Computed example of a mutant assay.
Amino acid sequence: MNRIRLINSIIQKANFKKYLEIGTRSGTSLYTISCKNKIAIDPNFIIPKMEKLKRKVFDIKNNRKTHYFEMTSDDFFEQKKEFLKNFGTVEISLVDGMHTYHQALKDVLNILPFMDEKSIIVMHDCFPVSEPASTAYNSEEFFTKEKHPEWTGEWNGDTWKSILYLLKKYPNDLEVFVIDTDYGLGIIQKKHNLPMNFELDTEFFRQFISYTFQDLKKNPQELINLKSKDIIPSLLNRFHY
């Protein structure tokens, strides 16, 4: 099961109405997600204006109420607080923007204040397929990854470290695990809906920068709470409200 099928299955089970997506780009996932109200965030959309209009006119059920924000996710959460307040609880999100530890983590931390205990985040690229695919953006290894014998053209980045951070930082407040499918689908939910501080802890963040793909490969169950895709039915069963 890939991220789109999982998200659609959750939306159907939970009857969710509000979806947020970071990393929309061409709309491949956005337009295949069946949800009434959508937020699409990307600094560089490549969706033609006529495509947006066509979707708004002819796909009334799923895309009439789609809000496009062509900006970075950081700018969105900084500048669109009033919009988010009016939008209400974000029920389900896809984080699939820049595949870096820092940015993926910031995206999750920015979404969490707008969630309740029923909401869920799905984060893509949390279990890299190979060492070159796991290279950190702008690192020396990133710029030489094509020379690696295991390079296949797939790049997942070091997004997985954001899962490690969340597991270690919020063991009593968040449920966090990765499903071993579609390059690793990170699942993040609140265990309760109490007020919390989700500011980035810089010192805590630095603890995990030096972790490598080899560390992950040795013990993915411990580092990212990796679970078989067999867990998906039990995950979906949570959403019988």
Rank of each mutant, 00 (worst) to 15 (best):
M1E: 08
M1L: 10
M1P: 10
R5P: 00
I7D: 13
I7M: 00
I7W: 10
N8S: 02
N8H: 10
S9I: 06
S9C: 00
S9A: 15
I11D: 06
I11M: 06
Q12K: 11
A14R: 06
Y19P: 04
L20Y: 04
E21P: 06
E21Y: 01
G23E: 02
T24A: 03
T24E: 06
P43E: 00
N44A: 14
I46C: 13
P48L: 03
L53Q: 01
L53D: 05
R55W: 02
K56T: 02
I60T: 15
K61S: 09
N63I: 04
Y68W: 07
S73F: 11
Q79I: 13
L84T: 12
N86E: 14
F87A: 10
G97N: 02
T100Y: 14
H102L: 13
H102A: 08
Q103G: 03
A104Y: 00
D107M: 00
D107T: 08
D107L: 12
N110A: 09
N110M: 03
I111Y: 07
I111K: 13
L112S: 11
L112Y: 10
P113D: 07
F114K: 03
M115W: 05
D116H: 00
K118V: 01
S119K: 10
I120W: 13
H124V: 01
D125S: 09
C126V: 09
C126M: 15
F127K: 14
P128M: 08
S130L: 08
E131H: 10
A133E: 08
A133Y: 14
A133Q: 09
T135R: 03
A136I: 10
Y137K: 14
N138K: 15
S139K: 06
E140I: 15
K145Q: 13
H148V: 09
E150K: 07
W151T: 05
G153M: 11
N156C: 15
N156H: 11
N156T: 07
G157Y: 06
G157F: 03
W160I: 02
I163R: 14
I163N: 07
L164I: 10
K169S: 05
K169W: 02
K169H: 12
K169A: 03
Y170L: 04
Y170R: 01
N172K: 15
L174D: 10
L174C: 09
E175W: 01
F177S: 06
F177N: 13
V178H: 10
V178P: 08
D182F: 12
D182V: 07
G184H: 10
G184I: 11
G184M: 11
G184R: 12
L185T: 02
I188P: 07
I188Q: 00
N193F: 09
P195M: 09
M196Y: 14
F198H: 04
Q207S: 08
Q207I: 01
S210W: 09
Y211R: 13
D215M: 04
L216V: 14
L216I: 05
L216K: 00
K218D: 06
E222R: 04
E222P: 01
E222S: 08
L223A: 09
N225R: 03
K227P: 08
S228G: 08
K229I: 09
D230N: 13
I231E: 15
R238P: 01
F239R: 07
